[in-house]
Write a protein that binds this DNA or RNA. Structure first.
Lengths: 271, 271
DNA sequence: CAGTGGTCTAGACCACTAG
DNA sequence: TAGTGGTCTAGACCACTGA
């Protein structure tokens, strides 16, 4: 590791080095704690610490970066609000992961209408339909920022709710991943995996999903989709198009979900 | 105003007064800055400062509450993240309102599919359908925490997108408000008002909406709704049920929206 | 008990706004 | 230039965890 000192980008400590005064009208001023934050993100991106693992203590990081503990603290605070890190008093600060119970299906906003009765199994069953490798279609190339001709992995699956009368289809998902990053992904691995798919991505491919953007629409079920979801053709379905990002705002997954919302709904909090 | 000193609720400064040691297993510990935060919320609730107005400076508040500036700062920081306050460097801290350009339709997540062309009018026209006063229906009583028999105001309206070929219906809204709080609300006032409805609520009724919860579903258009939205009966529509809250988590508005999502979508960010 | 994050303070200085 | 919020520091002490 090399010199790790940090300087504010402000104009007060006149830069003695011949650094160019090219101000592109935007950069303005980046406080120290944001530079620390960026460094931490880069460390996460470089997988210096794995999801679920602890990062160094605030004191250690302060020493490494040659700043006060308070400055490191502010950087970590922001990363914690961004859900990149998780603070645990008395224990340390940990890299966020999709393994913990609390955040397991963080991006799935579908909930049952009625308050679940005591003992109702709210977990969803999974049923893999397809998992294949191919050249990425144009739309996938565009959204995942691939190069034309790059490989992609397509996965299709059903999520089913556990009802007394048996499992009923609830969500039909169709998702696309960059083929180079997800080289070893196969139907076998997907079927064998217990737990959230995003956790599998962390464990097997070192990819942690940080955030996502979704576009929602109401659509009529095609004959094909209707059959898979066991609803009449033409039924209204909630179409959820998701673009999920990993560290550094890099798009990593394109997911198209069809939700059957007769007894469930998509929950959202506005503020 | 009375004594304004604050004490941590922690156990270290042994309470000399005979305050009961009843620990209900939950309260745990409330840091100073959270108590300050609560006080500020109560001041907002009491309309001590109006939406859009500046609150006292950090130094003034620190003096008033007998704490350091840093503690006030942390309280305000949280209120700013909660969107109750807005900080403006060099100017002061202001009570959030639905008047500013940036946050005008903060709760409306409907956006056009295509990037709007230069000069396209993205604003929506409003067309009031009904505004009437009545005894609140059971569902409204429940959701708005009213008493049975309490009055309510029902408003129905259309939002229309401006297209080259003229305005086309996009959203059909049906909303319910507590009749006592919204005593003077009438069709005339609604029609005359220019700007966001939530801003009208602030100006005329002193009600500021802080946050909201939404439940989304795909439904088939009824004959009636279809006619108003100018779509075929049975068309898939996005049903958005919103419960909006004012200061202190008090439910204040129940809104049911039907979105036509053929050329628009509901945008959501997950993190 | 040592080590972690969490709170609170006091003071210096910077960035931004407006008179 | 005065007043606001924003950053950074250093130090003291508290709350929580686990050995």
């Amino acid at each position: 590791m090399m010199s790790d000192t940090v300087q504010p980008t402000g104009s007060k400590p006149a830069q003695p080095d011949g650094s160019p005064p090219v101000q592109e009208a935007a950069p303005a001023f980046s406080p120290l704690y944001r530079q620390i934050k960026q460094r931490l993100v880069r460390s996460l991106q470089a997988a210096e610490w794995q999801p679920g693992q602890a990062i160094p203590s605030e004191m250690e990081l302060a020493a490494r970066f040659q700043v006060s503990q308070g400055t490191v603290r502010k950087a970590i605070d922001e990363l914690a609000t961004d859900n990149l890190l998780v603070r645990r008093q008395g224990k340390g600060t940990f890299v966020a992961s999709h393994a913990e119970q609390a955040t397991q299906y963080r991006f799935l906003r579908l909930v049952a209408d009625a308050a679940p009765h005591e003992g109702t199994d709210t977990r969803l069953q999974r049923q893999l339909l397809t998992c294949r490798r191919m050249r990425a279609p144009a739309e996938v190339v565009r959204q995942l920022a691939l190069k034309p001709g790059d490989p992609a992995v397509q996965v299709q699956r059903l999520l089913l709710a556990n009802r007394p009368e048996g499992p009923v289809p609830m969500v039909l998902e169709d998702l696309w991943l960059p083929g180079t990053t997800f080289k070893g992904l196969s139907a076998e691995r997907l079927v064998a995996w217990r737990g959230p798919m995003y956790r599998l991505f962390e464990v097997e491919f070192g990819v942690h999903m940080v955030r996502a953007e979704e576009k929602l629409r109401a659509v009529a079920a095609s004959a094909e989709d209707a059959a898979l979801l066991a609803v009449p053709a033409g039924s209204p379905l909630l179409l959820v198009e998701r673009l999920a990002y990993t560290y550094g705002d890099q798009p990593m997954e394109l997911r198209r979900g069809l939700y059957h919302t007769e007894h469930h709904h998509y929950r959202n909090e506005l503020s």
